[in-house]
Structure formats: structure tokens, C-alpha cells
Simulated scan of single mutants.
Amino acid sequence: MKKFNLTLALLWIGIGSFAQSVDVDKEKLFELYQTQRYAEAGEYLKAAYGEEITDLKTLNQIGYCFLMAGNNVEAEKFYTRAYNLQPRSLPILFSLGSISTKRGNTEKAKLYYGEIVKLDSNNFSVYKLLANLYSAAKDSLKLVYLLKANQLNPTEGDIAGDLAEVHAVYQNYEKAYQVLDIAIKADSENFVLQRAKLPIANQLKKYNEVIVSGEMLLKNGTDAAVIKDVAKACYYTKKYDKAIGLFSILEKLGMQNENTLYFTSLSYLYLKNYKMASVYARKTIDEAISPNTSSYYALLGLSYEENNQYTLANSAYKKGLQFKVTPTLYYRLAILHDTKLQQIKNALNYYQLYLQSKPNAKDDGEEIKFVQARVEQLRLPAK
């Protein structure tokens, strides 16, 4: 509210300056600002001043109105004209950089923000904005800008979190931990930073800290990432029952993955519950295998078959069956043995397996009819 009132005050000053040279209805304009009808205010000022505006304050004011209204095209037009009059103005450069970012022109935004760095090398905000323009965590310039921003304001949470993430990508876990630790000490109730710290603390083997901090975070709500980190810390501190309990929560939420199932299996193994260890070992394997793997082998086999590499095609189709039994693989094997390898007995077996695998009657109707007819033909005694 204070920020909005300050904006209104500044705009009111601007209205006064307008009234000195152009007949502007100050009351109308103030009402438009107060009700946040910025688009109308911008159009009103454009009409009042015409196209040949050379006053810097006026250009800024109109540009601001369109920027607040979300009309970035008009906003950029007026701010660019203001920039041409005063290219070293930080507010103008910030506005043009923001507009370019919103329009997806990151290279242009970098140029405007780069001009700000030249004018004010200790401006925290511009380094934060520049860092956000680089999406890849391993981009060297992203790290440079994050380091500079963090140096200027080490307690700012967003920068601390982003910098820690980049450090973690480079496996500089100690640096990541220190960055987050400083920011958390300045804002002890920042749960975002605390959650970000857990996997890094796990990497540094600060398991007890992870358990204590994670359990506190879980009191504020269920978070799959926190559960996973705490469960791992419990595993590494040999609290296997507790680890299994936490990993089971992830399963109930449908948030399990290969890694969590693997640690569950290991936990059961150390508890000498070999039956459950084998169950979760199997689940780990299933999770690690893509549900599309059999389809990939079907594609590979077909490629071999079309290239007359029948032995390789046969191996590929059979390999696909090891991952998932599908009607398609049985069909391809049957056709291969029937028409290419001339192995009628095997072909008949695969045709029958195809029908037993319950292919989709709607989608595979023609194939089903063909297979049924071919099975009858192959069953007839040879003449």
C-alpha cells in the first residue's frame, strides 16, 4: 500500500508538470491513476500531447502508464524515445530491460542491464535480473552475476537459493551450504531455503541436521522432496524402520522413484527382511525400465527386418518380450518366422500367442482376422 501511495504521489507531481505546458485535466488523470486505469491514462496523455513529444518527464510518464497497463509495445516506444534523450538514466534502462524480458528478447535485455552495470557496478537489482536471463545452471555468466549479487546482499533469499543450486550442480556442496546457511540465519522462517538446504546437507553427511530440520518442515505440510531427504538421512544413520516408513509415504502419494525404491529394498535387507527386500528390488527394476522399452525393441526389430537382418530382428523382438509382453511383438515374431525364416512351427506358436495376448479388437481388427485365418491354414495337414 505504501508503494502504491508513493507511486500516486510521484504521478501527481508529474500531473502538475503536465499542467504547466498542456491543458491536462488533472482531476481526471489522478482518478485514472487512483483506479489503476493506466491504459486510459496513457491514451489520454498521448491525445493531449500529440506525437511530437520531446519532454523527458512526459515520455517517461506515458511510458510508465503503458508499462503498468501491460502494453509493452507502446511502453517501449515511449521509453526508447526517452532513452534517446537521456541514455544514462537508470530508471529508463531498467524499464527497457524489463520490457525486453517480458517480450522474450533476452539479448536486448542484457544490453540494457549491461549499461546499468557500467553506470552502477554495485547495483544489486541489476545483477539479480541479469542472472535470471541465463536459464542454464552451468552458464558461466549466470554464476558470475549470482556471485556478485550474493556478495552485495548475502541475505537475499532468492539469490542465495539460486546460487546454492548452481554450486550444487558443480558439486560444490560446501559452498552451497554456506550460502544457504547465511541467508537462513537472516531469515530463520524461510522454508524455501530450508528445503533447498536438505539435499545439500545430505551430500555433506550432515544427517542429524537433515532429520531435525526436515521433521520440523514436515509439521508445516507434506512435501515429497523433504520426505525423501529425511528418509535418506534416516537410512544413512541406520534408522531403517523409520526410513521405510517415510519411503512408504512416498509410495502412497505415488511419488516413489527408482532411487527411493532402491533405498527401501536396502533398508529391508539390513533388517534381514529378505522377502520384502526382494519385493522392492523387483519394484526398483520395474521403475528403472521405461514402459516404452518393449516398443523401442519392436521398432529396432522392424528396422532390422526391413534391412533383411532377420537374425538380429528375431533377437530384438525377443528382447522386447523380456521387458513387456505385447501383441505387437508376438505379431512381428509370427510374421518374421512365417514369411522370412520359413519356420512354420514357430510361426504358428507366435500367432497363437498373439491371439492369447488379447490384442485390441477395434484397433487391430484386420490383423486379428488375418492371424485367425493363417492359424487355420497352418493347422491343416500338409498335402
Score class of each variant (00 low, 15 high):
Leu163Ile: 12
Leu163Tyr: 07
Val166Arg: 06
Val166Ser: 06
Ala168Phe: 14
Ala168Thr: 12
Tyr170Asn: 14
Gln171Asp: 08
Lys175Ile: 11
Val179Phe: 03
Asp181Gly: 05
Ala183Lys: 07
Lys185Phe: 05
Ala186Trp: 13
Glu189Ser: 12
Glu189Asp: 15
Phe191Ser: 15
Phe191Lys: 15
Val192Ile: 14
Lys197Arg: 14
Leu198Ala: 03
Ile200Pro: 00
Ile200Trp: 07
Ala201Trp: 02
Ala201Phe: 00
Gln203Cys: 14
Leu204Ala: 07
Lys205Tyr: 07
Lys206Glu: 07
Lys206Gln: 13
Tyr207Asn: 10
Glu209Leu: 01
Val210Cys: 09
Val210His: 02
Glu215Ile: 00
Leu218Met: 09
Leu218Phe: 06
Asn220Glu: 12
Asp223Gln: 08
Ala224Arg: 03
Ala225Asn: 15
Val226Pro: 02
Val226Asn: 03
Ile227Gly: 02
Lys232Tyr: 07
Ala233Lys: 00
Tyr236Ile: 03
Thr237Tyr: 04
Asp241Ile: 09
Lys242His: 12
Ile244Lys: 08
Phe247Ile: 03
Ile249Cys: 01
Ile249Val: 08
Lys252Val: 10
Leu253Tyr: 13
Gly254Leu: 01
Gly254Cys: 02
Tyr262Ala: 06
Thr264Gly: 05
Thr264Leu: 06
Thr264Arg: 01
Ser265His: 00
Ser265Ala: 05
Leu266Trp: 01
Ser267Met: 00
Leu271Tyr: 04
Asn273Ala: 06
Tyr274Ala: 04
Tyr274Trp: 09
Tyr274Gln: 06
Lys275Phe: 14
Met276Ile: 05
Tyr280Val: 04
Ala281Met: 15
Arg282Asp: 09
Thr284His: 00
Thr284Trp: 03
Ala288His: 15
Ala288Ser: 15
Ile289Asn: 05
Ser290Thr: 09
Ser290Phe: 05
Pro291Lys: 01
Asn292Pro: 12
Asn292Gly: 13
Asn292Thr: 12
Asn292Val: 12
Asn292Cys: 14
Thr293Cys: 10
Ser294Lys: 08
